[in-house]
């Protein structure tokens, strides 16, 4: 009973953070800032949902699959964000006008 309530709480926290991530995706100005919202909030949100599923199901094969899902999200989502950000920068997509510094572009010119 307590386990199911806790699981539900985690699932709701996850959904809330997923929602905030999507909101950030719409509101923030350029691709790099949007990636920030997409990697942080959505990773945490999805991990929260999966952890809730694990709590509800306990140590069964189903629960372990949820735990393994968390691990793979933690490993793959930062790598995807890195690949998108790097590709965007190499493809010449500029940072938003409010940006204060871009050391990456500076170093690329030197090479």
């Amino acid at each position: 009973m307590i386990r199911e309530t806790l699981g539900m709480v985690f699932i709701f926290i996850g959904i809330a953070f997923d929602f905030l991530g999507v909101l950030g995706l719409v509101r923030l100005p350029d691709v790099y800032n949007r990636l920030q919202a997409a990697t942080k909030c959505v990773t945490f949100g999805s991990a929260g949902i999966l952890f809730g599923v694990f709590l509800i199901n306990g140590f069964t094969s189903f629960g372990f699959k949820a735990l393994l899902g968390i691990m793979f999200i933690f490993l793959s989502s930062p790598v995807a964000a890195h690949a998108i950000a790097r590709a965007a920068h190499r493809g010449g997509i500029p940072l938003t006008r409010e940006s204060v510094i871009d050391e990456y572009a500076k170093d690329k010119e030197l090479k």
């Binding site: 509101r27 923030l28 940072l95």
Partner: peptide, 16 residues
């Protein structure tokens, strides 16, 4: 990040 997204003024100062 949730705070920044919800803030009406979007208080960001981005850079690399």
């Amino acid at each position: 990040v949730a705070f920044i997204v919800l803030h009406p003024m979007l208080p960001i100062k981005p850079g690399i």
